[in-house]
Nucleic acid binder design. Structure first.
Lengths: 227, 227
DNA sequence: CCGTAAACGGACGATCGCGTCCGCTTCCAG
DNA sequence: CTGGAAGCGGACGCGATCGTCCGTTTACGG
């Protein structure tokens, strides 16, 4: 059962090339871009891709491992911060910055959700416990509103993530939403100035007639749906 | 160029059947469910479906026409309200309730976005103008914070919509997010009690190991991406 | 009741993505 | 240097969806 441990150098190299290609392709074409596109971009045969990552899930998971690592670290840092509110803010801002900056990650983040709870909950449980502790401390410090619930943090992250997924180019909107949310979580209302608003317009959202090319290009589906 | 005007009764009936089926199927299987599935559900041949709605976009647009109509009406009502803040709240709550209650609509709402601005901007322009007016009035009434920008409303709607798309069953999270956002938009901070929190957990979001079936079932893509 | 035009439906060819299979190449230990 | 095992790559068979084409059915005005 003990695997060779010694991996051929070219294999390791190819693995990295595939991961980089996957990030690029997922960022450009969405999480369900053809596997072949990833392989081509990596300069590698499909078989090699499938050998390293038997399923799309495995590939996505590995491709964004660093990002998840960053999230996880941000939680630890938040917990270690001298002021729990600062910790909370740090957590939110770190995760949201990741959503904003790492193209394709929001989709992976959202996609991770529905199937999240079932098994493996090892690290998940721990994260939950840490979050609960952080929230309790921040509430007790008086900075966080007393009716704040840990799930509100998740709610905020998912909402932000969903917005970024829909509007991947609007960093202004992302920053502004984060600022609004953080302000609404404070117990007092230190109305710190908000970052500048985005250029979003109501556009055709309420319009009845729609031009061509409206929704067709990658018609989008709800990320969280059991097959 | 003048079309017959007189449409056969069965044609009209089939059209309605297809629209109802489309809403059902889109709700269950996402916006890019097979056209054939819609046809089957409607008890109709594919050809009939394609005759009435030449493209998927056309079908989606028509299927959710009533919902868009409701949004549009909500804006008008908001503008007509005696108190502009009440109007704004009504608008947000109406649209978000729609997101929450009409399965499939959030995806359509989001999908409508990226291609929104280009042409047809007729109704869009008007909506924008109305919104700007509403916002100005609400600011001047003192209820809405002075640094609120009309795009913030769109930002909030897209964020809420994104969250609902990711967590279609969590009405509690939806209501709570709306409450947080509305509170954060107030100039004063009338800390009205929030609706109860959701049962969301951090789950495996930060977890490194992921069990099987994590993201695979309908792997989700960013709704707004030009092909 | 009847004829016609409109509407219907399902079969069909084309396209696309998946994941495997197998012959060839490359690494590296001895 | 050399042999063998690990790794590689692309062709291939499969299944799903698309959108059209055409023979058949149905509504309805006269």
């Amino acid at each position: 059962m003990t695997s060779p441990d010694r991996v051929r150098a070219d294999a390791r190299r190819n693995r990295e090339r595939v991961l980089a290609a996957a990030r690029a392709v997922f960022a450009e074409r969405g999480l369900d871009a053809p596997m072949a596109a990833v392989a081509r971009r990596a300069g590698v045969g499909v078989a090699t891709l499938y050998r390293h990552f038997p399923t799309r899930d495995a590939l996505v998971r590995e491709a964004f491992a660093r990002q998840r690592e960053t999230c996880s670290r941000a939680l630890a840092e938040a917990l270690a911060a001298a002021d729990p509110w600062d910790g909370l803010r740090h957590l939110v801002e770190t995760v949201c910055a990741l959503h904003r900056e790492e193209r394709g990650f929001p989709a992976a983040f959202l996609a991770a959700f529905p199937g999240a709870a079932p098994e493996h909950a090892r690290l998940g449980r721990r994260a939950e416990r840490d979050l609960a502790l952080l929230v309790r401390r921040a509430r007790e410090s008086g900075a966080l509103r007393p009716d704040f619930h840990p799930s509100d943090l998740v709610m905020a992250l998912v909402a932000h993530c969903g917005m970024v997924a829909a509007l991947p180019d609007d960093a202004a909107a992302s920053r502004r939403l984060v600022a609004y949310l953080l302000q609404s979580f404070r117990a007092d209302r230190a109305n710190a100035p908000l970052p500048p608003p985005s250029a979003l317009s109501l556009g055709a959202l309420l319009s009845t007639a729609r031009g061509p090319g409206g929704l067709s290009p990658s018609s989008s589906r709800r990320p969280g749906t059991r097959g």
